[in-house]
């Protein structure tokens, strides 16, 4: 996965709170292989029922500004695949569900949690506005507003470098092996008895 440091694109509003993973991608689409592309599944049923859906009005948008508790529900990483494959690079909301936020960072999608999300939704309204994100300085410019956002050091490094945890962890192989051996010696019960 390629890392990125700055992104410029268009932001649109998804004016809903608790956008759950079943809405982001209904379960019936999840047997597809990733190679087929998940973008067409994004928010499938909501879009089908709404002729004026923001992402259909502005198909080039790459930033979503949504309501609190974005990504709640299941651990399905397919919810993130759907966003990424539809060209979304940044989601801004008051808050994110923990599992979703972790999955997002693992796939190059930036979750920006900020109390300013409501003000941004109001400023953007029905349109699409230019937006810019800088991961290095943790700054977001959208609808003429500039704001700093919080992002853990780990998430920042992973997004910017496109790092894969497996490579990083394999560097600790010796520590892992030692831990395993010590655990097996001290806590043999922790291995299945059958």
């Amino acid at each position: 996965m390629a890392g990125w440091t700055t992104h410029e694109g268009e932001a649109v509003v998804l004016d809903r709170r608790d956008v759950d993973t079943d809405q982001l991608i209904p379960a019936r689409f999840m047997s597809a292989s990733r190679a087929e592309g998940y973008g067409r599944f994004l928010l499938h049923d909501l879009r089908e029922d709404d002729a004026d859906f923001p992402l259909d009005r502005h198909p080039g948008a790459s930033m979503l500004v949504a309501g609190p508790n974005f990504g709640c529900g299941s651990s399905r990483e397919a919810a993130v695949y759907a966003l990424v494959d539809a060209g979304i690079r940044v989601v801004v909301a008051e808050s994110f569900a923990d599992i979703f936020a972790g999955n997002a960072v693992n796939n190059g999608l930036l979750p920006v949690a900020t109390p300013e999300a409501a003000a941004l939704r109001a400023a953007i309204g029905q349109g699409a506005v230019p937006a810019r994100v800088d991961l290095a300085s943790r700054r977001l410019s959208v609808a003429g507003q500039e704001l700093n956002f919080a992002l853990s050091e780990t998430a920042q490094a992973k997004l910017m470098n496109g790092w894969d945890d497996i490579d990083l962890t394999r560097a600790h192989a010796g520590d892992i092996r030692n831990f395993r051996d010590r655990r097996k010696a001290d806590h043999a019960w922790a291995w299945p008895s059958a």
Binding site: S75, I99, N103, N106, N107, I166, R170, I176
Partner: peptide, 19 residues
């Protein structure tokens, strides 16, 4: 619960990164 990237990580290393 963990996402697919983490599942692959646990399969490959029997460990998980978590805050």
């Amino acid at each position: 619960g963990i996402g697919a990237t983490q599942v692959a990580h646990v399969l490959a290393t029997q460990t998980v990164w978590q805050a």
